[in-house]
């Protein structure tokens, strides 16, 4: 007898194929597209009033609250890129002993978050996956008192800060003037530094001065 529904399996297979075509937004991103550049600033500051800057000669690596000073190739690239962009915007590089108006610090930050996998009913039905009889202990149950799933995700980023040294004495504190964050894939690559710092300055047109 001819089966008039011969095409149904094919149709359902097609539907499953279409469902499988659902795109994962993150899989379509290149490393460059994955990166974001965020800037924030003190809106009360007039950046024209600042003329000179000094930049720290190393980078503070803040790894889950533990701080060490380092100077890797990518750190060097970020420090150089910051110096170049500041000079392009009219600021004069001076030694930190020459009373700079702005202090620049570059920081490499690692933040690790920990979570737990949700196994659902995995252990509740374990006897269904591996009947204790299989091991020669039919009638026994499994006791799983300690197993849990832990995952860790570490995100790394560059955080670049500008501090107000010009008014530190008056204010009796060193105020943050500007912060730039570089996050995403490849932020620790030397080749990323110039592009990232250029992006931070491109969205900070107020960062300029004249002598």
């Amino acid at each position: 007898m001819k089966n008039k529904f011969w095409f149904v399996p094919g149709l359902f297979s097609s539907l499953l194929f279409v469902t499988g075509c659902s795109k994962d937004p993150l899989q379509n991103l290149t490393p460059e597209e994955s990166r974001i550049y965020t800037t924030s600033y003190d809106s009360s500051a007039n950046f024209q009033d600042y003329k000179t800057f000094s930049i720290a000669d190393s980078v503070a690596v803040i790894d889950n609250g533990v701080v060490v000073k380092q100077h890797s190739a990518s750190d060097e690239a970020y420090l150089n890129a910051m110096q170049n962009m500041m000079e392009q915007r009219g600021y004069l590089l001076v030694d930190k002993n020459q009373s700079p108006d702005i202090a620049i610090a570059v920081n490499r930050v690692y933040n690790t978050t920990t979570g737990f996998f949700d196994y659902g009913d995995y252990w509740d039905y374990y006897g269904g996956y591996w009947d204790p009889y299989y091991w020669g202990y039919g009638g026994y149950g499994y006791n799983v008192p300690f197993v849990f799933g832990v995952y860790q995700i570490t995100e790394g980023l560059y955080s670049i800060d500008m501090f107000d040294l010009k008014n530190a004495t008056t204010n009796q504190e060193i105020n943050l003037l500007w912060n730039g964050l570089v996050r995403g894939e490849g932020v620790f690559n030397v080749s990323t530094a110039t592009e990232a710092v250029n992006a931070l300055f491109a969205q900070s047109p107020y960062l300029n001065t004249t002598h």
């Binding site: 795109k23 937004p25 993150l26 379509n28 991103l29 597209e33 994955s34 990166r35 974001i36 550049y37 965020t38 800037t39 924030s40 600033y41 003190d42 809106s43 992006a199 491109a202 969205q203 900070s204």
Partner: peptide, 13 residues
């Protein structure tokens, strides 16, 4: 945010 800007590729799904 207030006085905060972010340069990014925006993806909506």
């Amino acid at each position: 945010g207030d006085h905060e800007a972010t340069s990014a590729v925006l993806t909506n799904s």
